[in-house]
Nucleic acid binder design. Structure first.
Lengths: 117, 117
DNA sequence: TCCATATATCTAGATTAATTGATATATTGC
DNA sequence: GCAATATATCAATTAATCTAGATATATGGA
């Protein structure tokens, strides 16, 4: 993942309403949730939710698809995967001994090997 | 990790100067880097760097220790581990089939099992 | 004690983010 | 075409963040 994308993803999830919204969407995979229902679930006005969903979408964390009158949003779990990979490559990858239960996997998977000495 | 802590960590890393600073510190584990040297590396004024380090420290991502006149900062890699665990538990844990190379580990480690149906 | 070095704190200005009422756009059914 | 529903966009306000100059605090050495 690009460095600028990592910033977008971290900043998008680093906000209470958005993190909670994303967690709702993850739990409702793969059906997704309509924007209006999300607003009700989170008890925020629909335009506020719309703005938050736009931030999450710009970060690639969600995708909305029109379904009749509603727009149903779904979590892009691959984006979480990419974020985890980035974190492991940059941090645990360079210091496998310090990363507990994930160590063995990092050691096995070449894609997770560190690029830093 | 507490929900409020997750927000702190994500927001702390979701800023270009801070993410780059943290990456420098990860690379320099376990020696650490003095605050002033970090400011030079990142080409920002020392008080700006001090403010960023305070945010990272409040999120538990770094810790500073006085060494003579300098204060040497070190990355808290365990915090990254905790963040990854949180992400896997909340997202991949509930949908192991969608999480690629990490799937097997999540399946093996009881601590990473999902709490969401 | 005095000076130099290193970092944190204070303060203020500038920028960006969050929230929400009002309005526009798109879809469905009559 | 018209009304109803669902969502996005606009506009304005408030709040939070980022930045950096000036100053305070702490350490070490002469």
């Amino acid at each position: 993942m690009e460095n600028t994308d990592v910033i977008l993803v971290l900043a998008a999830l680093g906000q209470p309403t958005r993190l909670e919204t994303f967690r709702h969407l993850v739990r409702k995979e793969p059906e997704g949730i309509a924007a209006g229902e999300l607003a009700r679930l989170m008890a925020v006005p629909q335009n506020t939710m719309s703005a938050h969903l736009a931030v999450l979408a710009r970060a690639g964390l969600v995708r909305g698809e029109r379904q009749s009158r509603s727009i149903v949003y779904r979590a892009e779990l691959g984006r979480v995967q990419a974020l985890v990979d980035y974190l492991l490559k940059d941090c645990c990858g360079g210091h496998p001994a310090l990363c507990g239960p994930l160590t063995s996997l990092v050691a096995q998977d070449p894609a997770l090997q560190s690029t830093c000495p």
